[in-house]
């Protein structure tokens, strides 16, 4: 056994709940690895919101998003809420080598509202530039059967957004799908994960 600190030991010290994703985010050698790790980390935040949905029924987009940001900050990730990036985005994560990942959050209240969120993320915040070509639509859903909402959103997106491509679909198992479209600003591809957070809470007993 060496005296130096192993990756396992660092995983244990830097957020064991996140299954190594925190170390992976910080130590990543490239942006795809960083994005992969960040997506794994926010899943733990989303799961926390779902677990505690009986307590957050009255909270709006900002209050829910702030909880995600604060959890990221505790993990030493440079995350902020309401940061000015061509507008005020909900979850703003920046890092070395021009890294930028933006989450645009919406409490589902209609598909036009989600479309507004998509347009904000796509045309206001996204650059598509190096290290800045991934983002997330975070759909806080208090409707019954969130799966139906996400499927409907996916079909609507394909209908209204010319040139968009759905290239990975985990709707049925993970409540997310990925889209890719050409960023109007740069002409480069921009990747969005559309993640529904099921917050419906109506116990029958």
């Amino acid at each position: 056994m060496t005296a130096e600190t192993s990756l396992s030991q660092i995983d244990a010290l830097s957020g064991i709940m996140c299954d190594g994703a925190v170390s992976a985010y910080h130590l990543a050698k490239d942006h795809p690895t960083r994005v992969d790790a960040l997506e794994r980390i926010v899943e733990f935040s989303y799961n926390s919101l779902v677990r505690n949905r009986h307590l957050n029924q009255e909270q709006g987009e900002d209050e829910l998003s702030v909880q995600i940001v604060e959890q990221l900050r505790v993990l030493a990730i440079q995350a902020t809420h309401d940061t000015q990036t061509g507008g005020h985005c909900d979850v703003h994560v920046e890092g070395k080598d021009h890294f930028l990942w933006i989450g645009e959050a919406k409490v589902h209240g209609g598909y036009q509202w989600l479309e507004d969120g998509f347009q904000q993320l796509s045309t206001r915040y996204a650059t598509g530039g190096y290290g800045q070509d991934h983002g997330e639509i975070i759909i806080y859903c208090r409707n019954r059967v969130g799966l139906d909402v996400l499927n409907t959103w996916k079909e609507r997106l394909k209908a209204v957004q010319h040139g968009i491509e759905i290239y990975e679909d985990k709707t049925d198992t993970r409540l997310w799908f990925r889209s890719r479209h050409q960023c109007e600003n740069s002409g480069l591809p921009f990747h969005i994960r559309h993640r529904l957070i099921p917050l419906y809470f109506a116990p029958k007993k």
Partner: peptide, 14 residues
Amino acid sequence: LVSAVHFLTSSRYA
């Protein structure tokens, strides 16, 4: 300490 090292590795201030 690990968080500080990591912040100086991954943040805009790396």
